[in-house]
């Protein structure tokens, strides 16, 4: 129950981030709540909200580009209509012109945990 409350609180924060970044939250709330739970898990594990769809190193400096909203979010929303996790989406997704889907990874391999 506490987990749900935390995720609900985070959902509201994510809504604010979306507004600030001129994009939208994925309209599938259940999906977004799952991402919020993942972000909270990573916050507890690493001390920062690294992207739940990527393997973090645990080194904050190295993971800086994948702390949500990640460094690839805006270009991905622009090019594909959604970020890698499909947390943040474009107006085209809201309007039904683009269907939410899994997009290619933009993060260079050199930045990943083991490379």
């Amino acid at each position: 129950m506490k987990k749900d409350k935390e995720a609900e609180k985070l959902y509201k924060q994510l809504e604010t981030v979306a507004k600030y970044k001129n994009c939208y939250l994925n309209p599938d709330k259940e999906f977004v709540m799952g991402i919020a739970q993942g972000l909270l898990v990573n916050q507890k594990k690493y001390g920062y909200m690294s992207c739940p769809c990527r393997l973090a190193s645990g080194d904050g400096k190295r993971d800086l580009d994948i702390i949500c909203p990640c460094a690839y979010m805006l270009p991905d929303v622009k090019d594909f209509g959604m970020c890698y996790c499909a947390l943040y989406v474009s107006k085209d997704v809201i309007g039904g012109r683009i269907k939410v889907h899994s997009i290619p990874e933009r993060r260079p391999n050199s930045k990943k945990k083991l490379s």
Partner: peptide
């Protein structure tokens, strides 16, 4: 998979 990832789920 990743336990935190919605696409994995």
């Amino acid at each position: 998979a990743l336990s935190t990832c919605q696409w994995c789920k």
